[in-house]
Simulated scan of single mutants.
Amino acid sequence: MGSKAKKVILFIVLAFFVYAVFTSPTKAADIVGNLWGVIVDGFNSILTFFNSLLNR
Results as ranks from 00 to 15, higher is better:
27 K>L: 15
6 K>S: 13
28 A>G: 02
28 A>Q: 01
1 M>K: 14
25 P>M: 02
53 L>M: 10
5 A>D: 07
37 G>Q: 10
46 I>R: 03
16 F>D: 05
3 S>F: 15
18 V>L: 15
21 V>Q: 00
20 A>P: 02
55 N>A: 15
8 V>K: 06
47 L>S: 08
53 L>T: 11
37 G>H: 04
43 F>W: 07
17 F>A: 14
17 F>R: 08
26 T>L: 12
55 N>Q: 09
33 G>D: 07
33 G>E: 04
5 A>Q: 12
25 P>D: 01
46 I>S: 03
28 A>R: 01
14 L>A: 14
29 A>P: 06
46 I>M: 10
14 L>N: 07
55 N>M: 00
19 Y>D: 04
34 N>E: 05
43 F>M: 04
41 D>L: 12
20 A>T: 05
50 F>C: 06
18 V>R: 10
34 N>H: 11
3 S>M: 11
33 G>K: 01
27 K>S: 09
32 V>Q: 02
40 V>C: 04
14 L>H: 10
54 L>V: 04
25 P>G: 02
35 L>Y: 14
13 V>W: 14
5 A>V: 15
18 V>S: 07
29 A>R: 12
40 V>Y: 12
6 K>Y: 08
13 V>P: 04
4 K>I: 02
5 A>G: 02
8 V>H: 04
14 L>T: 14
24 S>G: 06
4 K>C: 13
14 L>S: 13
7 K>Y: 01
12 I>Y: 02
25 P>W: 10
28 A>T: 15
46 I>P: 01
39 I>D: 00
41 D>V: 15
9 I>A: 05
38 V>K: 09
7 K>I: 14
17 F>D: 02
29 A>C: 12
22 F>L: 10
50 F>R: 06
19 Y>Q: 04
40 V>N: 02
26 T>A: 15
56 R>H: 14
16 F>R: 06
34 N>V: 03
48 T>L: 04
35 L>K: 06
45 S>Y: 03
13 V>G: 02
42 G>W: 09
51 N>F: 15
46 I>C: 06
52 S>E: 13
22 F>K: 07
51 N>W: 14
29 A>F: 08
34 N>W: 09
37 G>S: 08
31 I>H: 00
37 G>L: 00
55 N>S: 07
33 G>Y: 01
40 V>R: 10
56 R>K: 13
24 S>N: 11
14 L>D: 07
39 I>F: 09
2 G>V: 02
23 T>S: 05
22 F>I: 12
7 K>R: 11
2 G>E: 02
53 L>N: 06
18 V>H: 08
13 V>L: 15
54 L>H: 05
28 A>V: 14
36 W>M: 05
8 V>W: 07
